[in-house]
Amino acid sequence: MSQAAAAPWFELQGITKVYGQGESEVRALDGIDLLIEQGELVAVMGASGSGKSTCMNIIGCLDTPTAGRYLFHGADVGGLDRDQRALIRRHFIGFVFQGFNLLPRTSAVENVELPLVYRRVEAEERRVRALSALKAVGLDGREKHTPSELSGGQQQRVAIARALVSEPSLLLADEPTGNLDSSRTKEIMELLVQLNQERGLTIVMITHEPELANYVKRRIVFKDGRIVEDRPVRSS
């Protein structure tokens, strides 16, 4: 990864994903080319079934492409096996989901610690880093609360703290505000923008809501497994 500075942060080359075979074959992705540089904040849009989620799963190393190359810091990770992909996720990628996906009946701080547990970080350091991540998302003082004791916006902040705590190269957010009302949505978006600006965190975010595009610098639109639009957004 020594050439990381020179190589693009992430690059998809002709990524294709096909589900099923023969008659029932579905082309979820049809030759995607995409280049994401360090520090970008990208909104991915498109109707459901347009392939944007499949693309995110591949970028997030949750899924493998049927064809094409996925260069991650210059290394092809498209053909990695299950455990190798898990290691990429463990060390380089943070996830934020629409449904928050926190562990139930588990305190906020323990939820945030989870990625560090699998990084074999010592308990003490884990706690310190988790608390500082919670602080970064404005949740200090609520570390002992379980998800059911937190509002939707707070839960999503915990989820963002969890994604941040391992200091990933890339944060993938799948409709992070999909379950939130408009004022919470604004808060979360502002938090993401702040993280992007202050930490230079690369963020790729799926969204259905066109107005959220106002927060980002670049917008990508998927349709039928292809990128039909990819352009910078003027900051408002």
Binding site: A86, R89, R90, F95, N101, L114, Y118
Partner: peptide, 8 residues
């Protein structure tokens, strides 16, 4: 969730 955050 565990798998997503990097559990083998």
């Amino acid at each position: 969730i565990r798998l997503a955050v990097g559990a083998l």
